[in-house]
């Protein structure tokens, strides 16, 4: 069911997401990819192919080390989607104040373009092996 979010509910959500994000950031900043502790992609283990998200964890690690170039090299799509996700979160939080932003971001065509981008990205990265 769709919860009716009050101001307090939104604030709690932001705080909870913030805490989780900081915890994840600390974990990925301190654990090296070579340690073997990173969860592995089920899709890659089963098929040998890269999924759209493969490299995201290494990208987060590189980003937290300040190596933006390496981060893009590990998963460019993931890096590109970070601002999009932030924008989506923003439009959800302030949907009353920016109703048009919310409408643009929930537009069917827009969402299908995102979906197509993810699919094309997956195909291309497997053909050219990056």
């Amino acid at each position: 069911m769709q919860p009716v979010l009050t101001r307090r509910g939104k604030l709690l959500t932001v705080v909870a997401v913030g805490i989780v994000a900081v915890a994840i950031a600390i974990a990925y900043a301190s654990v090296e990819p070579s340690s073997g502790y990173y969860p592995r992609c089920a899709f890659k283990m089963l098929t040998g192919l890269s999924c759209p998200g493969c490299g995201s964890q290494r990208a987060i690690h590189a980003l937290l080390q300040g190596d933006f170039r390496a981060a893009i090299g590990f998963n460019a799509l993931f890096i590109a989607e970070i601002p999009l996700l932030l924008l989506l979160g923003f439009s959800w939080l302030f949907r009353d104040r920016f109703p048009r932003l919310g409408r643009v971001l929930s537009n069917q065509f827009f969402i299908l373009v995102i979906l197509a981008t993810i699919i094309i990205w997956t195909i291309v990265r497997n053909i050219f092996d990056f």
């Binding site: 759209p52 995102i114 993810i118």
Partner: peptide
Amino acid sequence: LALAIIATICCCI
């Protein structure tokens, strides 16, 4: 949508 994108990229395609 945001959670769906995260789910697609990070969890389970």
